[in-house]
Design a protein around this nucleic acid. Structure first.
Lengths: 128, 128
DNA sequence: AAATATATACGAAAGCATTCGTAGTTGCAA
DNA sequence: TTGCAACTACGAATGCTTTCGTATATATTT
């Protein structure tokens, strides 16, 4: 599965949230969040290209085609994360985490959740 | 300070390691790690553009100009991280961290270091 | 039925990063 | 001093993503 570009990722994010959506719906969502408005045909074109690449499927049975993400969210995030860590932190996920936590405004709950995960990982270590 | 592109970041990484370096030195390093060789003039051009953008400074007193990073490593990583988290994890650093740790091969030492950081952050929480 | 709104399709332009060819310069070695 | 090696400068080509204009078809409203 090919990695999405930044524009494609924005569209995938909407599809992950909505499940399935028309170009109109996606384009509206994109323009809700966004500063600079994106033209309808721009979104359409991008989604057509994504269909060609296999990132999304589409149901063309009604006039307004309904698109659905094929690319999985976790898998896609993992792939992008790998690229980013390689380029920016020399491949060290730990460095990334340290930098991310260092300036995050993580809430106590979030910190607790991360700590819990770490403790689980440590348990796995011990079992191995 | 403008964010570097991916190619520029690769060059900055070398400069951060070496302190100051000529185009030849940077190009050699890039081609050490890399699969696909990068032409000398390609690196030269990129570094010239970086000088224009203020990402690096250069000492032109000798024939081989010596380049030095102006962009700081931590600051640059922070900036790139923010962009990435916004695009890929909807701005949630916590999500990023959870995903990064979930599949990392972090060593026990690294896990311990992250835990230590979290505990420090929790202490700060309490003080506030 | 005619006018209007909303779809898809698609070529092409625009924007940006990267790559390279080539010209011209400077140092060094034969 | 002649020639070769290494350097800078820079225009231009390439490649990729994004954006948009326009043609065309299909629904909906008046």
């Amino acid at each position: 599965m090919q990695q999405p570009t930044e524009g494609e990722l924005a569209i995938l994010s909407v599809l992950w949230r909505l499940g399935g959506a028309t170009v109109r719906e996606v384009n509206d969502r994109l323009n809700d969040d966004s500063d600079k408005p994106i033209g309808y045909t721009t979104t359409l074109k991008l989604m057509q290209l994504m269909a060609d690449k296999g990132l999304v499927s589409r149901d063309t049975s009604s006039r307004s085609h309904v698109y659905t993400a094929i690319a999985g969210r976790e898998r896609t995030q993992q792939g992008l994360l790998r690229r980013f860590v390689d380029a920016t932190f020399g491949g060290s996920r730990t460095q990334l985490v340290l930098r991310a936590l260092g300036e995050s405004n993580a809430t106590p709950d979030e910190l607790a959740e991360i700590k819990r995960l770490i403790e689980e990982l440590e348990k796995e270590e011990n079992h191995a």
